[in-house]
């Protein structure tokens, strides 16, 4: 598994530092003056809490859904005092991937997490099956047809008509295709099913 040196230049430094068992690493918890964390103690939120925080980090390209809605956060665990967040890319070359890593890091550091490592996981490869129902609902309300196993949108996200046709297999981001509704004549994005 490739660690931390992710495309786009996001490097999570703490991941490279060996975990030293005790609490002697510099500038932890108390160094930041976090409320409720005595000096010298490691700030260690529960993984459930971390999931809640990640649930509030929006996708940079489609901000109505969160990273957890998208299903790209694969795991949140502690190894020693280091919080490991495992992320899988949607598409290999998606430029949002490096922004997503930066946003995760910024959010978690903002909540006081100091020992953080982001790991990239390629297998199992991301699938739209991992998108949450609330994510699908939010996409549709936003005007993007959610992914369907049939390989195309079931209806126009604007007017609900089933009279839709494909314009192009590729859209404004790698994860979307361009379709149009032949009833209301509006073009729309379809979130590809992979």
């Amino acid at each position: 598994m490739a660690a931390t040196r992710l495309s786009g230049g996001v490097v999570v430094n703490d991941a490279q530092r060996p975990t030293e068992g005790g609490g002697e690493a510099p500038s932890r918890g108390g160094g930041r003056g976090l409320p409720g964390v005595p000096p010298g103690e490691t700030f260690r939120p529960s993984t459930d809490t971390v999931w809640t925080w990640l649930n509030a980090v929006p996708d940079p390209e489609i901000p109505v859904i969160s990273l957890t809605d998208l299903g790209i956060i694969r795991d949140v665990v502690y190894e020693g005092d280091t919080l490991i967040v495992t992320v899988t890319p949607t598409y290999s070359g998606c430029p949002a991937t490096s922004i997503i890593n930066l946003d995760i890091e910024t959010a978690l550091r903002g909540h006081g997490v100091e020992n953080l490592e982001l790991r990239r996981q390629l297998s199992p490869a991301w699938t739209t099956d991992w998108m949450t129902q609330s994510g699908r609902d939010k996409l549709e309300a936003y005007g993007i047809a959610p992914p369907q196993p049939a390989g195309g949108p079931d209806k126009c996200p604007h007017c609900g008509s089933q009279a839709v046709e494909k314009m192009s297999q590729f859209g404004s981001t790698p994860c979307k295709a361009q379709w149009r509704c032949t009833a209301c004549l509006e073009p729309f994005d379809y979130f590809k099913c992979i």
């Binding site: 495309s7 890319p89 598409y91 290999s92 070359g93 430029p95 390629l122 192009s168 590729f170 790698p174």
Partner: peptide
């Protein structure tokens, strides 16, 4: 335009795959 976007997306996928292979 649609073909322009499709070509750019294809190139992007290929460059992304390149990062894995060459990495």
């Amino acid at each position: 335009l649609e073909e322009d976007i499709a070509l750019a997306n294809t190139a992007l996928d290929l460059i992304g795959q390149t990062q894995f292979w060459l990495g």
